[in-house]
Amino acid sequence: MSVKEEIYSQIVGALEGASFPIGNPEDLFAAFPDGADTTCKSGDVVLKASDAGKVLTGDDFPFKSAENVAQTIVDRAGL
């Protein structure tokens, strides 16, 4: 599994119990188990939920699924 696939899978897993759609960054952070401190790791790559705030824009919302969140984050993070 590539780094991108592993991080994607971890994000989807972290958002497993989240209620969608998610309409803003605050609600997205709240949906993660450890909030903005939720961390995904693959090899030397460490990605915190708070890092998502650096790559997401208001136009990305609302998110309709965990997969939508994960795909947007891994694409924008350049993984």
Rank of each mutant, 00 (worst) to 15 (best):
M1I: 12
M1Y: 09
M1F: 11
S2C: 13
K4F: 03
K4V: 09
Y8S: 09
Y8Q: 12
I11N: 04
V12L: 14
G13Q: 02
A14H: 13
A14D: 13
A14F: 13
L15W: 01
E16D: 11
G17L: 10
G17T: 05
G17H: 04
A18H: 03
F20L: 06
F20A: 03
P21V: 01
I22H: 04
I22C: 09
G23I: 01
P25H: 02
P25A: 00
P25Q: 01
D27Q: 13
D27M: 07
L28V: 04
L28S: 01
F29D: 09
F29S: 12
A31D: 00
A31Q: 01
A31Y: 05
F32T: 03
F32E: 08
D34R: 15
G35Q: 07
A36H: 12
A36L: 08
D37F: 05
D37M: 10
T39H: 07
T39D: 05
C40A: 15
C40W: 14
K41E: 15
K41N: 08
G43M: 01
V45W: 09
V46R: 13
L47G: 11
L47C: 13
L47N: 07
A49W: 09
A49Q: 12
S50K: 15
S50R: 13
S50L: 14
D51N: 14
A52M: 15
V55T: 06
L56N: 00
L56R: 01
T57C: 07
T57S: 15
G58A: 09
G58T: 02
D59F: 12
D60G: 00
D60C: 03
F61K: 01
F61T: 01
P62D: 06
P62S: 01
P62G: 02
F63N: 02
S65Q: 02
A66H: 08
A66C: 07
A66W: 03
V69H: 02
V69Y: 02
A70S: 11
A70N: 00
A70I: 11
Q71N: 09
T72Y: 00
T72G: 03
D75Y: 06
A77F: 14
G78H: 04
G78S: 05
L79A: 01
